[in-house]
Amino acid sequence: MARPNPADLELFRRGIMARLTMVDSGYGPSTVLVGVEFEARLGEVSLVTGPAAAGKTTFMHLLRLALPIHAGRAVILGEDVARASPKMRALVKRRIGYVAENPVFIEHWTAFENIAMPLQLAGKRSTDYSEDVRELVEFVGLGEAADLAIAKLSGAERRRAAIARALAGKPDLILADDPTAGMSPADGRRIVRLLAEMRRVNAGVVIASQDETLADCAPLNHWRMDRGRLSLVSEEAEHADLEAFE
């Protein structure tokens, strides 16, 4: 197993959750992302917007270590992604909370059991985590639906369950791919605010969405993806306060 580079670990200690430098990436031999320069910091929210098929989901796959890097350098949570062993990648993934565009669950398990899975993987016993999971369930507004089999939940409820599961392991980096898809504008904004709240609990947050209007619902760094190229639109105002947006 390759040893972590001290300089990469230092990046993480300085609160840089992800730093991509001139990264090309894609599926197999085809390159989707070109020359991506990106940084996600602790306590900050990054919103990546762009039209359909611009490369937002590919970008999220890259950040969650599911894609190979064709060129450039990506350091995520203190690990150089290209050099990391499969086991190290798995360990880094465990510190990432990911809300997929179409979340995958174990359909015959209850929402509660699905949400608790990261904690099970961490070796915790149900008696130790059940109270925390209940709190999360209330936090995302899932309520009593948490005790139903996930297959019986509506699309919005599944998304809330996915968010709760992503937060359950107290991740350092939270990735949400189009978390407002299929929701009313008001519900969508509520979800984004909820995710943005996570910056207060020692995490960096990256949200990908087609909806440009989400940029004004929380203090965040706004990036735009277009045909695989990423550019910074606006940076979060210094000392911006989330409450001012509510």
Binding site: K93, V104, I106, M117
Partner: peptide, 14 residues
Amino acid sequence: REMVTVMTDLGATG
């Protein structure tokens, strides 16, 4: 398979 996929996404080793 779905369980393996979910576990993998959540950072389970092989």
